[in-house]
Measured scan of single mutants.
Amino acid sequence: MQIFVKTATGKTITLEVEPSDTIENVKAKIQDKEGIPPDQQRLAFAGKQLEDGRTLSDYNIQKESTLHLALR
């Protein structure tokens, strides 16, 4: 499925993911596309910060959802 990640600079990244993917996997995909190390990424959805060990389906993130990326 496709999801979107909006960066602090307003850029939107499109990612191909599975509901079973962990947040860690998603951060690795962002690193592949943007070169941002996962340990510098903070992802949020619906106002909640997402934890590495959880999956997209844990957070009820569905196709075409938009996550927000902040850098630490």
Rank of each mutant, 00 (worst) to 15 (best):
Q41D: 01
P38C: 03
V5I: 07
R72G: 12
E34T: 09
D58P: 01
E34A: 11
K6S: 06
E51M: 05
T9R: 13
E18W: 10
R72V: 08
L50T: 02
T55Q: 15
E64P: 03
A46E: 15
I36P: 04
K27R: 09
A70M: 13
K6M: 15
Y59K: 01
F4M: 07
I30K: 00
L50K: 00
G53M: 10
F4Y: 14
A46G: 08
I13Y: 11
F45H: 07
L67P: 01
A70Q: 05
D39S: 13
K27I: 03
L69Q: 03
K63R: 11
R42H: 14
L43Q: 00
K63Y: 11
T9V: 14
F4S: 07
K6T: 13
N25W: 08
S20R: 11
V17R: 00
A28L: 12
K63P: 10
P38G: 06
A44E: 09
Q41F: 08
F45R: 02
T9P: 07
E16M: 08
H68M: 08
I3R: 00
E24W: 12
Q49M: 13
D52R: 04
T9N: 15
E64R: 10
E64V: 04
I13Q: 02
K29A: 10
T12F: 15
D39E: 08
V26S: 01
P19W: 06
A46K: 07
I13R: 02
S57G: 12
P37E: 12
I36F: 13
D52Q: 07
D39C: 04
V5F: 03
I23S: 02
T7V: 12
Q2W: 07
I23F: 03
I3G: 00
N60F: 09
K11G: 13
K11V: 12
Q40G: 12
I61P: 01
P37R: 14
L71R: 09
A46Q: 14
V26T: 06
I23T: 09
N60Y: 09
T12A: 05
R72H: 08
K48P: 02
G35C: 03
D32N: 15
T66N: 09
R72S: 12
Q2G: 06
T14H: 15
L71M: 05
T22D: 10
L67V: 13
N60K: 05
Y59Q: 05
Q40C: 03
